[in-house]
Simulated scan of single mutants.
Amino acid sequence: MTRIAFYGSSLLSSYWNGAATYYRGLLQALAMFGHDISFYEPDAFDRQAHRDIDPPGWARVVVWEASARGLSRAAARAAEAEVVIKASGVGYEDDTLLQEVMGAARPGALRIFWDVDAPATLAAMQADPDDRLRRLLPSLDLVLTYGGGAPVVAAYRALGARDCIPIYNALDPESHFRTAPDPRFEADLAFLGNRLPDREARVEEFFLRPARALPEMRFVLGGSGWEEATLPRNVRLLGHVPTREHNAFNVTPRMVLNVARDSMAQTGFSPATRVFEAAGAGACLITDAWEGIEMFLEPGAEVLVAQDGDDVIRHLRATGADAAGEIGARAQARVLAEHTYTDRAALVHGILKNRIRQTEHAS
């Protein structure tokens, strides 16, 4: 049994934490391969007041005080593990946490940086030769990324990483599946996502502009931060939608929308968690266009792709409820066959097994 110390944003709360579903699905599946996982998350951003799962049986969750003392105590526990993983975007003194965690790792431990926002992380490193992560990269054994494909792999290697492997988002069939519709989410098109500066213009183009152009249709907007936004009359604002309600949110509307952040769309090969959540529920998904979508779903048959707001309008007008249901059913079948977290965990398990063996042989 391999002991893994994983330092991330939060496993217990999805509140202002887009990586929650990714962590939960992947780590639960990884535990099935016999790994003993301890997840260390800071008490930050009021997440502990918005927990949406209980501490799971498949991981030991340690909530540490967001202070210098709390950080040091949590980082010191990296010495207990054979594999030490620091994720990006933990949310409290990330650079210091990275340095202390990797410094505390025992000799021979596998040291991994797991990037859940590669475009932003790479941009920061490329802009600053003294960036803490950039300086530490050559000393780390491996970088794993939430997505990004060949462009991200090449960029990481150019900055000194020994190796970089994308571990894409996926579906957890036990968490995201077809369920009964909920009248709260009835709409022609629904979008779920927090209001972020580098996504707002795309939400305007792909969601709000179609809403204004189609006043006879109903639109639903979920996520935090939209309270001050100017919305068309036919857009109903929900606020934060807990993870436990995502299945109903995805299955109820005629269609659901995925909108990537600017950096993710430009990088490509970065399917958001929402893509697999929606497909797992059998939803008809409209996604903004990004390179690599065909690796995950077939455009036109399993997902509808929009280059701009006009394409969203066209899809809404041309795709009735029956056709939308058929697209959703095909998407669900595809992700169940090829894109579950068990598939991704098998890849990670193989990587860890091989790297640990190499380290043992080297010593």
Rank of each mutant, 00 (worst) to 15 (best):
G148Y: 13
A123S: 15
A104P: 03
G149F: 14
V153D: 07
P138Q: 01
A74L: 06
A75L: 04
A155P: 13
A120R: 12
V143E: 08
P138L: 00
R134F: 00
A120L: 13
A127D: 12
V90Y: 04
D131I: 10
A124P: 04
D115K: 08
L97T: 15
G89C: 10
Q99T: 15
P151H: 09
L140Y: 01
Y92K: 07
V83H: 03
L122N: 05
D95N: 13
A155E: 13
T96E: 05
A105Y: 02
A104K: 01
G108K: 09
R135V: 00
D131R: 09
A78S: 06
I85Y: 08
I85E: 11
P129F: 09
S72Y: 03
W114V: 11
A74F: 11
R106V: 14
L97V: 14
G108T: 13
L136K: 01
A87S: 14
R132W: 05
V84F: 08
D130A: 13
A118V: 14
L142P: 12
A76P: 08
G149P: 15
S139R: 09
R77V: 08
Y146G: 04
G103A: 10
D115W: 12
I112H: 04
D128P: 04
L110D: 02
G91C: 13
L122K: 04
R73F: 10
G89Y: 12
M125W: 11
P138A: 00
A120E: 10
S72V: 03
A76R: 04
F113R: 02
R111M: 01
V84D: 02
E80P: 02
A127I: 10
L110M: 05
T96D: 09
A109Y: 01
G108N: 11
L140F: 01
